[in-house]
Design a protein around this nucleic acid. Structure first.
Lengths: 243, 243
DNA sequence: CGATGGCTTGAGAACACTCAATTGCTGTGG
DNA sequence: CCACAGCAATTGAGTGTTCTCAAGCCATCG
């Protein structure tokens, strides 16, 4: 197999939906040559610039909005392979921001070039539709998750991260690197920093997770999934990559 | 102007994104001839049937999921003109349900016929992409909303409902019919029935809303929007319908 | 008249918040 | 090597929100 499919998180992820032709893979790869570092706690997207799409190549970013009261709500994580600001029209989402939670490497993609690719390559158009749908499923799953008690909610996030990082080869069977802060996690769950600390301690005490030195390990994945009521179906990933 | 555009909620809503040709309007209309009543508290969608899309013509429905613990979380409302179960692939969303909150009239649309329309009419394809994007924006806005205190959160839902119903001509400047129960509202907000009752009393006491006899009136729309921190930008509706 | 479904109220417990202080780690400059 | 600043994690204490359980009320409908 070509090394590009393995190393390139976007292609890696998209091919969990449907296989791409070699031409399509190359076209996508050509889009993502020039990379740019973004340090933690800095915004990736220029606020009112809507003619660019951003691809995360490494690190973890977050789509978020800051409320008048001052608290920030992260509405989704963007891990390597995730395209951001795809779905924008007019001045609509001008107050939804995109920031790096850890140090990130990103690619700026002109929206027009991506549109061209979609119009000329049916395979790319197909996987992009799949992407939009999966993002919607994911957002609604986060809403459902918001109704769960905090400990199960947090567990659910960990389960989702595990699967999403496995897709791009950044997690093994039961662990992955997670360098974000507790404050970021709190903002993603909609609870306070003090409280997430105590919830984390609860999960640790129950041997559901081990999180030290930026490495998160899940001793018993099935047990954590059962605890979180996690069912990966909504991510709609094919069981395995059939080269 | 033709009466169909005024009376048909789906066309009415889609034309807030971009104008459709007369041929496209007729094609959509032809899809939605046979209507079916669904009484309150009954599911609209057959659980594991994924080859149909549902269009709400009257009443209010909700997309929801029931958690193990027994509580139900509504992740979005479907008002007249809303297409449901558009975005499904594989067995993914098998546990996300679609139920009528009030008495509803719905149209069952074979997914294949809608796909045909999208493939043959570029205008329809365009507005469908807009629709998917708006649903994602909306879901993320609900997530942000979940971080607000309960009274502001409820106010935000009312503001959104007002705009969405105005789009299809089911709300006037500051009021609309709202026949759903407090329990439904509670499930949409992720709080208990007892609590929503008290939050409602708070909004009523502050003269922010009047809700009696299934009619919701907002005495001062700007004041409620300010209270809820509501900005309709995420719905991406054009200011007015230009015939 | 009784049944039903929805709304309202009370009371105590559980959960999550804020404020504030402490600890530990890490990189930097002297 | 130490002092220091900055950031993240932790802990305590008191407060406020939201929950559950339970009962009562009020329409509507047969």
């Amino acid at each position: 197999m070509p090394p590009t499919a393995v190393n390139h998180p976007l292609i890696c992820k998209l091919e969990h939906s449907a296989a791409l032709s070699q031409v399509e893979r190359s076209a996508l790869e050509a889009l993502t040559l020039s990379r740019r570092p973004v340090s933690a706690r800095h915004d990736i997207a220029v606020h009112d610039n809507t003619d660019r799409v951003y691809l995360v190549m490494s690190g973890i970013a977050g789509r978020y909005k800051t409320l008048r009261q001052g608290n920030r709500r992260i509405v989704s994580f963007a891990v390597p392979g995730d395209l951001c600001r795809m779905h924008i029209c007019g001045p609509s989402t001008r107050d939804m921001r995109l920031g790096a939670l850890t140090h990130c490497t990103v690619v700026d993609i002109p929206r027009t070039r991506l549109t061209e690719l979609i119009e000329t390559h049916p395979g790319i158009a197909h996987v992009m539709r799949w992407l939009a749908m999966m993002e919607l499923n994911r957002a609604r799953e986060w809403l459902v998750n918001d109704s769960r008690p905090a400990d199960r909610r947090l567990a659910h996030h960990f389960c989702e991260l595990l699967v999403c990082l496995q897709v791009v080869g950044l997690a093994n069977e039961n662990s992955f690197e997670l360098a974000i802060s507790q404050a970021d996690l709190a903002d993603a769950m909609g609870i306070s920093q003090v409280h997430i600390n105590r919830v984390l301690q609860g999960l640790r005490a129950g041997d559901l997770i081990v999180w030290s030195k930026s490495a998160l390990t899940i001793p018993d994945v099935e047990r954590l999934q059962a605890f979180a009521e996690f069912d990966p179906g909504y991510l709609d990933l094919r069981p395995a990559k059939a080269a």
